[in-house]
Structure formats: structure tokens, C-alpha cells
Simulated scan of single mutants.
Amino acid sequence: MKTMTATATAALTLAFASEALATEWNVSLWGQRRAFTEHVEKLAELVEERSGGEFTMAISYGGLSNNRENLDGISIGAFEMAQFCAGYHRDKNRAITVLELPFLGVETLEQEVAVANAVYAHPAVQDEMAQWNARILMTSPMPQYNLVGTGEPRDTVEEFDGMRVRATGGIGQVMEAAGAVPTSVTATEAYNSMESGVVDAVAFAQHAHLSFGTIDIADWWTENLNPGTVNCPVVVNIDAYEALSDEHRAILDEAVGEAIEHYLLNYAELLQRWDEVLLEKGVQKVQVDQAEIARLRGNADPIHQAWIEEATSNGLPGQELYDLTVQAVADNAPE
């Protein structure tokens, strides 16, 4: 019977050790690869490259969970990383919904990142996420939402009255205050809802109007309504994060900044092409009069105050979180 040489034994031991050190994370997204997911794609690329292939991410677009259940999946360890939007389940992530309040005054994606990071760092946010075994890794910055719709353009508060609109979070609230009828159908359901006439308009950022096809059947787009945006963090399962080797955890953490920078550059290119898309699709650009926007903005203050009171009643430092958000918006205003 032949025995293994010392060299062969060492090689086999090294192979087993390498295999044991290899880590693959499952990542739950939805829809398709688009500007909204580019930072996750870039993160996976950087992590694999910098770990020499020992830490990889298998990204799934809807194959692991639907978008409303990604936080639940993280909580039970069904996958290690996921993206979700706060407006899909406000009761599960009340603290970060402060970032979805209407007319906060955020002007750029860079400012959006800074404001989100300030809020994510608050202990109340971290504690609430920990209830779902989740740790926020990074945000998914999106520009101010605007409406695409069918039929005649709607550009006054009176014309919003009775309008059925796909709008979540604070955007839905401010539209409701103007008499519209908001619905929170998911992004993947928006096209069918608009095509079938279930909704008259859809509030999205530009990338989503492109990715989910709403721009293809739209007649008009509000160029400057800018009522707010939604907040969609990327989270990791705490147990999986803590189980990483020190080296892999450092690689992951250090790749976040570069992934966000890639996202911002990619989104800037998309915005440069937006006018061409509207022209190609035959979509009318609608400029809403500043007096009408002011009327809408006047509905925001009671919504902000109601958020503070509700958050406080739920045991959160509502005023503190709100003040932190407003201060972060001011501190990071573009020059």
C-alpha cells in the first residue's frame, strides 16, 4: 500500500484549508440589474477580487425572496445580504422612515448618502435593525422622485385630486394630503398597474421608470415636482457578518465606499441620458409651477410633526432623529 509523501500531504492539507476558508454569500435583490443595484454588483466584484476569490457573492434578482420579504429573510438567515425599501414595511423599520419624509430639501445624491449615513449611525436605528438580525451596510441613494402618468398632464394641486398614484412613504402622504389616492404596489407591479389603469401615475426615480418600463407607456413626466425619495438600505445578516474572518470583514467594509462611488458615477451618466430617453419615448416634460409646489410643500410640515409624534409613541427618539436628519441635510448642502 502506497503512502502519501509529505509534500502531497501538505498540498492536500492546504487545499482543504483553502476550501474551509472560502465564503459565499447569497444576496437577495429584485427586478433586474440596474442603476439601483450597481453598488451591490460592484461590491461583489471588489470583494471577490480582493479576497483572491475566497469571498464571493451570489446575487439573485428575485430568486431568493420577493422585495417585501427581504428583511424577514435576513432575520432568519435565509441569505446573508439583501436590499429593501423602508416604505415596504414601515412598521419593521420605523426609525429610517424619517429619511422618506417629503420635502426634506435634499438636492444631490452625494447629499443623500451623507444624510442617510448620519441617520444609520444613530443607536436607535442600529438597535431597531438588530431586532431583525440586520446590520445596515450601505444606502442606495436615489434622486428626488417624479411622476410619470397617462392621459393629460397633471400639474396643479386641483388636478392631483382623485389621481390614483403609486407612491410610498412620505411621498404618498403628501400626495394624499393633496387629494390623490396613493397605493404602495411594489416596483415590479407598477407597470401592470399603470397599463391596466389601476393607477394614473407612478412616482419613481429615473432609473426605476426605465427599469420597470413605466416610461414606455407614459404620456408625461413632472420634471421638477421633487416631493422626496425613498430610502433603501443594503443590509447584512449580523451572524453572517460576525462569522467572517477578520480579513474578509475588513475587505467588505473597505469596499463600501468604492462601491458607492461607482454607483454615483453610474447614476450621473444615466441622468445625462434622461432627456434623450424622454424624446425617444415621446414623453412630455411637465414643469410644475412653483406656486403649486409651494402649496404641496405646505402639506409637509404636519406630516413631519405627525412622524415625530408617532415615532415617539413607538419608543423611538422621534424629535432627535428628525433634528439629526434636518441638520445633516443642512450640513451637507451642495455649495
Rank of each mutant, 00 (worst) to 15 (best):
V277L: 10
Q287A: 15
L264E: 04
H262C: 10
R273K: 14
L278H: 03
H262A: 12
L271G: 08
I260Q: 08
Q287V: 14
E269Y: 03
V286H: 02
Q284K: 12
I260M: 11
E280R: 06
V286K: 05
H262D: 08
K281E: 11
A259L: 07
E280L: 04
L279H: 14
K281N: 12
A268Y: 03
V283C: 07
K285E: 13
V277T: 13
Q287R: 12
I260W: 04
V286T: 02
E261G: 03
Y267I: 07
A268W: 00
L278T: 01
W274Y: 11
K285L: 11
L279D: 15
Q284I: 13
L270Y: 00
Q287F: 12
H262Y: 10
V288S: 06
H262S: 12
G282C: 08
Q284L: 14
I260E: 07
N266Y: 09
G282H: 06
W274T: 05
Q287E: 14
W274V: 03
Q290D: 14
L270K: 01
Q284T: 14
E269P: 02
Q290C: 07
D275Y: 02
W274F: 11
L278P: 00
N266R: 13
I260G: 10
L279M: 14
N266L: 08
V277F: 12
H262G: 15
V277P: 00
G282M: 05
V288E: 06
E261P: 01
D289C: 13
N266D: 10
V283R: 04
L270D: 01
Q272C: 01
A259Q: 03
Y263E: 14
R273S: 11
L265Y: 01
L270E: 00
L271F: 04
V277I: 13
R273H: 08
E261L: 07
K285A: 14
K281S: 07
A259H: 05
E280D: 15
V277N: 05
L279I: 11
Q287I: 10
E276Q: 13
V288D: 05
G282W: 01
A268L: 05
H262R: 09
N266K: 10
K285N: 13
W274G: 02
W274D: 04
L265V: 09
K281M: 14
E269N: 02
A259D: 07
W274K: 04
L265N: 12
E276H: 09
I260V: 14
K285D: 05
V283A: 05
Y263I: 07
L270G: 01
Q284C: 09
I260K: 07
L271K: 04
L271E: 15
R273I: 03
